[in-house]
C-alpha cells in the first residue's frame, strides 16, 4: 500500500496491516509487528520528511509460514550516517526532570524485529523488517 506519511495515515496503515496479518497468520505476533512497524513509520513521518510536506511511504508485506517481511520505502532524508541506529535503550534512572520523552523508537524496532536491513539508494530509503514466530501446529 501507498500512503502519505502523516500520523493519521500511519494509524490507518497499521490497522490495515494488522487486519491483513490476523486473517492470514495464526500465531503471528500481531502487537510486536504493529509496534515495530509503527515506530519505523513514525520515524519516516517525523524525521525523513521533517521540514517538508509529507511525502509518500510505500509498505509491502510478504508473508511466509512463520515469517513476515515488511518493506518500507520513502524518499525523505536518509538516516544519519546512512545506517540504521543501533537502538540503545535510553537510560531511565536519571532524575524525574531529565527522564527521556523520546529516543525509544529504534530501541523498540531492534527489540521487536528479528531482522533489520536498511539501504539508501537513488534517493530512496528502504527499510526491511523481518518478524518470525513458531509456525502454528509446529
Amino acid at each position: 500500500m501507498v500512503s502519505p506519511a502523516t500520523d493519521l495515515a500511519v494509524r490507518a496503515m497499521l490497522a490495515d496491516l494488522r487486519r491483513w496479518l490476523a486473517a492470514r497468520a495464526d500465531g503471528a505476533p500481531l502487537h510486536s509487528v504493529e509496534l515495530g512497524v509503527a515506530e519505523a513509520l513514525n520515524n519516516i513521518t517525523e524525521h525523513a520528511y521533517a521540514g517538508q510536506a509529507p511525502g509518500p511511504v510505500h509498505l509491502l508485506a510478504v508473508l511466509r509460514p512463520g515469517r513476515l517481511k515488511v518493506r518500507l520505502q520513502d524518499h525523505g532524508a536518509p538516516l544519519p550516517g546512512r545506517v540504521a541506529p543501533s537502538g540503545e535503550r535510553p537510560p531511565t534512572d536519571p532524575a524525574r526532570d531529565t527522564l527521556p520523552e523520546g529516543g525509544f523508537g529504534w530501541f523498540l524496532i531492534r527489540d521487536l524485529a528479528n531482522g533489520v536491513d536498511y539501504r539508501r539508494a537513488g534517493g530512496v530509503n528502504r527499510l526491511m523488517l523481518t518478524f518470525c514466530w513458531p509456525p502454528a501446529g509446529g
Binding site: H31, E34, L35, A38, E39, N42, R96, D97, L99, P100, E101, G102, G103, F104, G105, L108
Partner: peptide, 20 residues
C-alpha cells in the same frame, strides 16, 4: 490497547508537567 514510543513520551511528559 496500544502505546507507541510517542505515547510513552507523552505519559512521561505528563508526569513531569504535574509538578515535582
Amino acid at each position: 490497547d496500544f502505546v507507541d514510543s510517542s505515547g510513552l513520551g507523552a505519559i512521561v511528559a505528563a508526569m513531569k508537567q504535574i509538578g515535582p
